[in-house]
Design a protein around this nucleic acid. Structure first.
Lengths: 154, 154
DNA sequence: GTTTTTGCAAACCATTTGCAGGGTC
DNA sequence: GACCCTGCAAATGGTTTGCAAAAAC
Protein backbone atom coordinates (compact mmCIF):
# COMPACT_ATOMS: atom_id res chain seq x y z
CA UNK A 1 0.00 0.00 0.00
CA UNK A 2 1.20 3.44 -0.96
CA UNK A 3 1.25 6.40 1.34
CA UNK A 4 1.18 9.04 -1.39
CA UNK A 5 -1.43 9.76 -3.99
CA UNK A 6 0.70 8.25 -6.71
CA UNK A 7 -2.17 7.24 -8.94
CA UNK A 8 -3.89 10.60 -8.82
CA UNK A 9 -0.68 12.38 -9.62
CA UNK A 10 0.06 10.06 -12.49
CA UNK A 11 -3.36 10.63 -14.01
CA UNK A 12 -2.79 14.32 -13.86
CA UNK A 13 0.60 14.11 -15.47
CA UNK A 14 -0.72 11.91 -18.25
CA UNK A 15 -3.32 14.52 -19.07
CA UNK A 16 -6.36 12.70 -17.74
CA UNK A 17 -8.92 14.53 -15.69
CA UNK A 18 -8.59 13.84 -12.01
CA UNK A 19 -12.22 13.29 -11.18
CA UNK A 20 -13.87 12.21 -7.98
CA UNK A 21 -14.72 8.71 -9.23
CA UNK A 22 -11.19 8.09 -10.49
CA UNK A 23 -9.82 9.35 -7.23
CA UNK A 24 -12.15 7.05 -5.37
CA UNK A 25 -11.00 4.04 -7.36
CA UNK A 26 -7.39 5.07 -6.93
CA UNK A 27 -7.95 5.21 -3.18
CA UNK A 28 -9.47 1.77 -3.14
CA UNK A 29 -6.51 0.46 -5.08
CA UNK A 30 -3.96 2.10 -2.87
CA UNK A 31 -5.60 0.78 0.24
CA UNK A 32 -5.27 -2.77 -0.95
CA UNK A 33 -2.49 -4.76 0.49
CA UNK A 34 -2.33 -7.64 -1.92
CA UNK A 35 -3.84 -8.37 -5.26
CA UNK A 36 -7.44 -7.62 -6.09
CA UNK A 37 -9.88 -8.23 -8.87
CA UNK A 38 -11.93 -5.60 -10.62
CA UNK A 39 -15.00 -7.00 -8.95
CA UNK A 40 -13.37 -6.68 -5.56
CA UNK A 41 -13.19 -2.97 -6.15
CA UNK A 42 -16.72 -2.78 -7.46
CA UNK A 43 -17.96 -4.58 -4.38
CA UNK A 44 -15.92 -2.46 -2.04
CA UNK A 45 -17.08 0.73 -3.75
CA UNK A 46 -20.65 -0.37 -3.35
CA UNK A 47 -20.12 -1.37 0.26
CA UNK A 48 -18.77 2.09 1.04
CA UNK A 49 -21.53 3.69 -0.96
CA UNK A 50 -19.10 5.67 -3.04
CA UNK A 51 -21.59 5.93 -5.86
CA UNK A 52 -19.05 4.66 -8.34
CA UNK A 53 -20.46 2.41 -11.02
CA UNK A 54 -19.16 -0.89 -12.31
CA UNK A 55 -18.16 0.52 -15.65
CA UNK A 56 -16.25 3.33 -14.05
CA UNK A 57 -14.23 0.96 -11.94
CA UNK A 58 -13.34 -1.10 -14.99
CA UNK A 59 -12.46 1.98 -16.98
CA UNK A 60 -10.32 3.37 -14.20
CA UNK A 61 -8.39 0.14 -13.81
CA UNK A 62 -7.84 0.01 -17.54
CA UNK A 63 -6.44 3.50 -17.35
CA UNK A 64 -4.15 2.64 -14.48
CA UNK A 65 -2.95 -0.39 -16.33
CA UNK A 66 -2.27 1.69 -19.40
CA UNK A 67 -0.18 4.02 -17.28
CA UNK A 68 1.70 1.08 -15.83
CA UNK A 69 0.51 1.75 -12.31
CA UNK A 70 -1.19 -1.54 -11.85
CA UNK A 71 -0.49 -4.78 -13.58
CA UNK A 72 -2.66 -7.70 -14.41
CA UNK A 73 -1.76 -11.05 -12.96
CA UNK A 74 -3.15 -14.35 -14.02
CA UNK A 75 -3.50 -16.39 -10.90
CA UNK A 76 -3.00 -20.14 -11.13
CA UNK A 77 -6.77 -20.46 -10.98
CA UNK A 78 -7.12 -18.45 -14.15
CA UNK A 79 -8.57 -15.50 -12.28
CA UNK A 80 -7.53 -12.05 -13.36
CA UNK A 81 -6.16 -10.02 -10.51
CA UNK A 82 -4.27 -6.75 -10.31
CA UNK A 83 -1.43 -5.45 -8.22
CA UNK A 84 -0.11 -1.95 -7.76
CA UNK A 85 3.40 -1.57 -9.08
CA UNK A 86 6.08 0.64 -10.46
CA UNK A 87 5.84 1.52 -14.14
CA UNK A 88 9.01 -0.28 -15.17
CA UNK A 89 9.55 -3.78 -16.39
CA UNK A 90 9.59 -6.31 -13.60
CA UNK A 91 7.76 -9.32 -12.25
CA UNK A 92 6.03 -10.35 -9.07
CA UNK A 93 6.15 -13.03 -6.46
CA UNK A 94 2.66 -13.41 -5.12
CA UNK A 95 1.81 -14.93 -1.79
CA UNK A 96 -0.56 -17.82 -2.26
CA UNK A 97 -1.97 -17.33 1.17
CA UNK A 98 -2.55 -13.61 1.59
CA UNK A 99 -2.10 -12.22 -1.90
CA UNK A 100 0.60 -9.75 -0.99
CA UNK A 101 3.37 -9.42 -3.50
CA UNK A 102 6.94 -8.29 -3.98
CA UNK A 103 8.54 -7.01 -7.14
CA UNK A 104 11.46 -8.68 -8.83
CA UNK A 105 13.69 -6.56 -10.92
CA UNK A 106 16.04 -8.99 -12.50
CA UNK A 107 14.40 -12.05 -13.89
CA UNK A 108 17.45 -13.20 -15.77
CA UNK A 109 15.53 -13.26 -19.01
CA UNK A 110 18.41 -12.36 -21.25
CA UNK A 111 20.32 -15.54 -20.60
CA UNK A 112 17.17 -17.61 -20.87
CA UNK A 113 16.10 -15.90 -24.07
CA UNK A 114 19.48 -16.49 -25.63
CA UNK A 115 19.40 -20.15 -24.79
CA UNK A 116 15.87 -20.51 -26.11
CA UNK A 117 16.70 -18.72 -29.31
CA UNK A 118 19.58 -21.03 -30.03
CA UNK A 119 17.63 -24.15 -29.05
CA UNK A 120 14.32 -23.50 -30.72
CA UNK A 121 15.00 -20.94 -33.41
CA UNK A 122 12.29 -18.71 -31.99
CA UNK A 123 13.01 -15.02 -31.63
CA UNK A 124 11.91 -14.12 -28.13
CA UNK A 125 9.97 -10.91 -27.58
CA UNK A 126 7.60 -10.41 -24.69
CA UNK A 127 7.75 -12.52 -21.63
CA UNK A 128 5.70 -12.88 -18.55
CA UNK A 129 6.90 -14.49 -15.39
CA UNK A 130 4.71 -15.07 -12.41
CA UNK A 131 5.87 -16.67 -9.21
CA UNK A 132 3.71 -17.87 -6.38
CA UNK A 133 4.77 -18.83 -2.92
CA UNK A 134 4.56 -17.62 0.65
CA UNK A 135 5.47 -14.21 1.96
CA UNK A 136 7.61 -13.80 5.07
CA UNK A 137 4.59 -12.93 7.22
CA UNK A 138 2.64 -16.02 6.21
CA UNK A 139 5.74 -18.13 6.53
CA UNK A 140 6.42 -17.17 10.11
CA UNK A 141 2.79 -17.16 11.10
CA UNK A 142 1.96 -20.43 9.47
CA UNK A 143 4.85 -22.32 10.99
CA UNK A 144 7.40 -24.50 9.33
CA UNK A 145 4.89 -27.08 8.25
CA UNK A 146 3.31 -24.75 5.75
CA UNK A 147 4.89 -25.03 2.39
CA UNK A 148 3.68 -23.73 -0.91
CA UNK A 149 2.91 -26.20 -3.66
CA UNK A 150 6.17 -27.92 -4.37
CA UNK A 151 8.51 -26.39 -6.82
CA UNK A 152 9.48 -28.68 -9.60
CA UNK A 153 13.14 -28.52 -10.24
CA UNK A 154 14.01 -27.85 -13.83
CA UNK B 1 0.43 -31.94 -33.95
CA UNK B 2 0.73 -35.48 -32.73
CA UNK B 3 0.76 -38.52 -34.91
CA UNK B 4 -0.45 -40.93 -32.25
CA UNK B 5 -3.65 -40.99 -30.32
CA UNK B 6 -1.91 -39.81 -27.19
CA UNK B 7 -4.94 -38.20 -25.66
CA UNK B 8 -7.20 -41.17 -26.15
CA UNK B 9 -4.66 -43.49 -24.64
CA UNK B 10 -4.12 -41.24 -21.69
CA UNK B 11 -7.83 -41.07 -20.96
CA UNK B 12 -7.98 -44.81 -20.97
CA UNK B 13 -5.03 -45.16 -18.65
CA UNK B 14 -6.47 -42.65 -16.25
CA UNK B 15 -9.66 -44.64 -16.02
CA UNK B 16 -11.94 -42.35 -17.97
CA UNK B 17 -14.29 -43.76 -20.55
CA UNK B 18 -13.03 -43.30 -24.05
CA UNK B 19 -16.20 -42.11 -25.66
CA UNK B 20 -16.87 -40.88 -29.15
CA UNK B 21 -17.30 -37.23 -28.13
CA UNK B 22 -14.07 -37.24 -26.13
CA UNK B 23 -12.29 -38.86 -28.99
CA UNK B 24 -13.68 -36.23 -31.32
CA UNK B 25 -12.45 -33.42 -29.12
CA UNK B 26 -9.08 -35.14 -28.76
CA UNK B 27 -8.84 -35.30 -32.54
CA UNK B 28 -9.60 -31.64 -32.89
CA UNK B 29 -6.95 -30.83 -30.35
CA UNK B 30 -4.34 -33.03 -31.95
CA UNK B 31 -5.00 -31.55 -35.35
CA UNK B 32 -4.26 -28.08 -34.10
CA UNK B 33 -0.92 -26.65 -34.91
CA UNK B 34 -0.73 -23.76 -32.52
CA UNK B 35 -2.74 -22.66 -29.57
CA UNK B 36 -6.50 -22.69 -29.51
CA UNK B 37 -9.31 -21.53 -27.30
CA UNK B 38 -12.16 -23.65 -26.06
CA UNK B 39 -14.47 -21.75 -28.35
CA UNK B 40 -12.25 -22.51 -31.33
CA UNK B 41 -12.93 -26.16 -30.74
CA UNK B 42 -16.61 -25.62 -30.23
CA UNK B 43 -16.79 -23.75 -33.50
CA UNK B 44 -14.74 -26.31 -35.33
CA UNK B 45 -16.83 -29.15 -33.95
CA UNK B 46 -19.95 -27.42 -35.13
CA UNK B 47 -18.47 -26.69 -38.53
CA UNK B 48 -17.68 -30.35 -38.99
CA UNK B 49 -21.05 -31.33 -37.64
CA UNK B 50 -19.56 -33.67 -35.11
CA UNK B 51 -22.58 -33.36 -32.91
CA UNK B 52 -20.46 -32.47 -29.92
CA UNK B 53 -21.95 -29.87 -27.63
CA UNK B 54 -20.35 -26.85 -26.07
CA UNK B 55 -20.40 -28.28 -22.59
CA UNK B 56 -18.76 -31.47 -23.74
CA UNK B 57 -15.91 -29.60 -25.33
CA UNK B 58 -15.32 -27.63 -22.16
CA UNK B 59 -15.52 -30.75 -20.05
CA UNK B 60 -13.12 -32.62 -22.30
CA UNK B 61 -10.57 -29.83 -22.23
CA UNK B 62 -10.84 -29.67 -18.49
CA UNK B 63 -10.11 -33.36 -18.38
CA UNK B 64 -7.14 -33.08 -20.68
CA UNK B 65 -5.79 -30.27 -18.61
CA UNK B 66 -6.20 -32.31 -15.47
CA UNK B 67 -4.20 -35.08 -17.07
CA UNK B 68 -1.52 -32.61 -18.10
CA UNK B 69 -2.03 -33.20 -21.79
CA UNK B 70 -2.91 -29.65 -22.60
CA UNK B 71 -1.96 -26.55 -20.75
CA UNK B 72 -3.67 -23.24 -20.38
CA UNK B 73 -1.82 -20.18 -21.56
CA UNK B 74 -2.72 -16.65 -20.78
CA UNK B 75 -2.01 -14.67 -23.87
CA UNK B 76 -0.84 -11.09 -23.48
CA UNK B 77 -4.36 -10.02 -24.41
CA UNK B 78 -5.76 -11.85 -21.41
CA UNK B 79 -7.33 -14.52 -23.59
CA UNK B 80 -7.24 -18.08 -22.38
CA UNK B 81 -5.73 -20.44 -24.90
CA UNK B 82 -4.54 -24.00 -24.70
CA UNK B 83 -1.63 -25.90 -26.18
CA UNK B 84 -0.95 -29.60 -26.38
CA UNK B 85 2.05 -30.62 -24.34
CA UNK B 86 3.90 -33.26 -22.45
CA UNK B 87 2.75 -33.90 -18.90
CA UNK B 88 5.97 -32.76 -17.30
CA UNK B 89 6.96 -29.40 -15.98
CA UNK B 90 8.04 -27.02 -18.71
CA UNK B 91 7.16 -23.76 -20.38
CA UNK B 92 6.29 -22.49 -23.81
CA UNK B 93 7.47 -19.95 -26.32
CA UNK B 94 4.45 -18.95 -28.32
CA UNK B 95 4.61 -17.39 -31.75
CA UNK B 96 2.82 -14.08 -31.73
CA UNK B 97 2.03 -14.37 -35.38
CA UNK B 98 0.84 -17.94 -35.94
CA UNK B 99 0.30 -19.29 -32.45
CA UNK B 100 2.61 -22.26 -32.82
CA UNK B 101 4.68 -23.05 -29.81
CA UNK B 102 7.80 -24.82 -28.64
CA UNK B 103 8.44 -26.30 -25.24
CA UNK B 104 11.25 -25.18 -22.99
CA UNK B 105 12.59 -27.62 -20.52
CA UNK B 106 15.02 -25.66 -18.49
CA UNK B 107 13.76 -22.29 -17.45
CA UNK B 108 16.55 -21.71 -14.94
CA UNK B 109 14.08 -21.24 -12.16
CA UNK B 110 16.22 -22.63 -9.42
CA UNK B 111 18.80 -19.89 -9.59
CA UNK B 112 16.12 -17.26 -9.91
CA UNK B 113 14.12 -18.70 -7.03
CA UNK B 114 17.15 -18.75 -4.81
CA UNK B 115 17.94 -15.14 -5.55
CA UNK B 116 14.36 -14.10 -4.96
CA UNK B 117 14.16 -15.99 -1.72
CA UNK B 118 17.21 -14.25 -0.36
CA UNK B 119 16.15 -10.84 -1.64
CA UNK B 120 12.51 -10.81 -0.65
CA UNK B 121 12.11 -13.41 2.04
CA UNK B 122 9.38 -15.11 0.03
CA UNK B 123 9.44 -18.85 -0.28
CA UNK B 124 8.93 -19.59 -3.94
CA UNK B 125 6.56 -22.36 -4.96
CA UNK B 126 4.76 -22.44 -8.27
CA UNK B 127 5.93 -20.42 -11.17
CA UNK B 128 4.62 -19.72 -14.58
CA UNK B 129 6.72 -18.45 -17.42
CA UNK B 130 5.30 -17.52 -20.76
CA UNK B 131 7.37 -16.25 -23.63
CA UNK B 132 6.10 -14.72 -26.81
CA UNK B 133 7.99 -14.10 -29.99
CA UNK B 134 8.25 -15.34 -33.54
CA UNK B 135 8.74 -18.91 -34.68
CA UNK B 136 11.34 -19.80 -37.29
CA UNK B 137 8.71 -20.12 -40.01
CA UNK B 138 7.22 -16.72 -39.40
CA UNK B 139 10.67 -15.23 -39.06
CA UNK B 140 11.85 -16.41 -42.44
CA UNK B 141 8.56 -15.79 -44.12
CA UNK B 142 8.05 -12.37 -42.67
CA UNK B 143 11.47 -11.11 -43.55
CA UNK B 144 14.01 -9.39 -41.41
CA UNK B 145 11.86 -6.34 -40.84
CA UNK B 146 9.38 -8.26 -38.72
CA UNK B 147 10.29 -8.23 -35.10
CA UNK B 148 8.26 -9.15 -32.11
CA UNK B 149 7.45 -6.51 -29.56
CA UNK B 150 10.73 -5.39 -28.15
CA UNK B 151 12.18 -7.27 -25.30
CA UNK B 152 12.97 -5.14 -22.35
CA UNK B 153 16.32 -5.94 -20.98
CA UNK B 154 16.31 -6.66 -17.31
C1' DG C 1 -28.07 -52.55 -14.41
C1' DT C 2 -25.52 -49.15 -12.45
C1' DT C 3 -22.50 -45.48 -13.23
C1' DT C 4 -20.73 -42.15 -16.54
C1' DT C 5 -21.17 -39.17 -19.96
C1' DT C 6 -23.75 -36.31 -23.15
C1' DG C 7 -26.49 -32.51 -25.23
C1' DC C 8 -29.35 -28.98 -24.60
C1' DA C 9 -30.79 -24.93 -22.54
C1' DA C 10 -30.54 -21.94 -19.04
C1' DA C 11 -27.77 -19.78 -15.71
C1' DC C 12 -23.75 -17.30 -14.51
C1' DC C 13 -19.98 -14.33 -14.17
C1' DA C 14 -16.79 -10.94 -15.64
C1' DT C 15 -16.34 -7.37 -18.76
C1' DT C 16 -17.76 -4.01 -22.41
C1' DT C 17 -20.61 -0.75 -24.71
C1' DG C 18 -24.34 2.80 -25.98
C1' DC C 19 -26.04 6.69 -24.54
C1' DA C 20 -28.00 10.66 -22.20
C1' DG C 21 -26.82 13.51 -18.36
C1' DG C 22 -23.25 15.83 -15.65
C1' DG C 23 -18.74 17.56 -14.45
C1' DT C 24 -14.25 19.43 -15.87
C1' DC C 25 -11.16 22.70 -17.83
C1' DG D 1 -19.11 25.96 -24.02
C1' DA D 2 -16.68 21.96 -25.88
C1' DC D 3 -15.20 17.89 -24.53
C1' DC D 4 -14.35 14.35 -21.37
C1' DC D 5 -16.24 11.41 -17.89
C1' DT D 6 -19.95 9.01 -15.47
C1' DG D 7 -23.78 5.95 -14.31
C1' DC D 8 -27.06 3.06 -15.75
C1' DA D 9 -28.76 -0.62 -18.15
C1' DA D 10 -28.36 -3.64 -21.73
C1' DA D 11 -25.37 -6.40 -24.52
C1' DT D 12 -21.63 -9.54 -24.83
C1' DG D 13 -18.59 -13.40 -24.54
C1' DG D 14 -16.81 -17.06 -22.23
C1' DT D 15 -17.73 -20.76 -19.08
C1' DT D 16 -20.56 -23.63 -15.91
C1' DT D 17 -24.53 -26.19 -14.35
C1' DG D 18 -29.06 -28.88 -13.99
C1' DC D 19 -31.19 -32.46 -15.87
C1' DA D 20 -33.22 -36.13 -18.53
C1' DA D 21 -31.75 -39.20 -22.24
C1' DA D 22 -28.08 -42.14 -24.01
C1' DA D 23 -23.93 -44.67 -23.84
C1' DA D 24 -20.28 -47.19 -21.42
C1' DC D 25 -18.63 -50.81 -18.54
Amino acid sequence: MRTSDALGTALDRAGYAVTAPRRAVADLVEQRDGHFTALDLVTEARRRRLGVGRATVFRAIELFEELGLVERLDLPTGEHAYVVCEPVHHHHVVCQRCGRDAEIEDCGIDALAASIESNTGYLVGLHRIELFGLCPACLSQGGASRRPTSRSSD
